[in-house]
């Protein structure tokens, strides 16, 4: 097994500690992208199949994973599932099959974002920055309470009826953002800008899928949500 670690002497030392695991089976893409990401200031380790990806993940504990879906040995779905068993590291999915995007995200695999091939490298960098910014976000205050849900801002955990519910960082941020503005209707673009921190237009379905996943975890009856409601054609609102 050959592991390549691309590093660059001119990289920003403050971000050198940020380690990205890049998984794709296309060597040319891997090489170009890791060069680009390295120059953007991150330390990049690559893997070219699912098994290798899991192995590297366990060894280096990256701060972010960029994961292609169609991988030899173990595919991206399985890698994602394995990683989520032990970690809430942010994951960006790369896919050449946009018709299964809903399925990917709907499967509750816990990816934080997805990018459809081919993609603009500038946009990928912007997304990585936004996700890393969110991953390092800290909250002031102690707890927020909504009906039977308790949001602990210090430990970034959520519990319902005293039982802890595991949320990914994105889901947690989304819930806190809605909970801090109860009754206010947020459009999907509002949420992408304010929660995801995108200063560029992203895929609005990302928001829908995350709301759906969040409902599965915090609603009593996810099919008939009472907490996070849909205002048809307008957006989402939290009704405490």
């Amino acid at each position: 097994m050959i592991l390549k670690t691309f590093s660059d002497d001119q990289s920003n030392p403050s971000e050198l500690s940020t380690h990205i695991l890049l998984v794709d089976d296309e060597y040319d893409l891997l090489r170009a992208l890791s060069a680009t990401l390295t120059r953007a200031g991150w330390q990049v380790t690559t893997a070219s199949d699912g098994q290798q990806a899991l192995h590297v993940f366990r060894r280096i504990s990256p701060n972010l994973i960029i994961l292609d879906l169609m991988l030899p040995v173990l595919d991206g779905w399985e890698v994602c599932r394995e990683v989520r068993k032990t970690s809430d590291v942010p994951i960006i999915m790369l896919t050449a099959r946009d018709d299964s995007v809903d399925k990917i995200l709907g499967l509750e695999l816990g990816a934080d974002d997805y990018v459809t091939k081919p993609f603009d490298s500038r946009e990928l960098i912007a997304r990585i920055r936004a996700i890393l910014r969110r991953a390092n976000r800290t909250y002031t205050g102690t707890t927020l309470r909504l009906a039977d849900i308790e949001i602990n801002l210090e430990s970034q955990t959520v519990s319902r009826d005293g039982k802890q519910t595991v949320l990914t960082p994105t889901e947690f941020d989304l819930l806190v953002h809605l909970a801090r503005h109860p009754g206010r209707v947020f459009s999907r673009e509002d949420l992408l800008e304010q929660v995801w921190g995108y200063d560029f237009p992203g895929d609005l379905r990302t928001v829908d899928v995350h709301v759906r996943r969040l409902r599965l975890k915090v609603e009593q009856d996810p099919a008939h949500p009472t907490l996070i409601r849909t205002r048809f054609g307008v957006g989402y609102v939290l009704v405490p």
Partner: peptide, 21 residues
């Protein structure tokens, strides 16, 4: 189209990298 996307993604990433570098 799917089969075209994978090499296109590599092409685009390479092109960007060349342009920057």
């Amino acid at each position: 189209a799917h089969e075209l996307r994978t090499p296109l993604a590599a092409l685009q990433a390479l092109a960007y990298e060349m342009q920057e570098n």
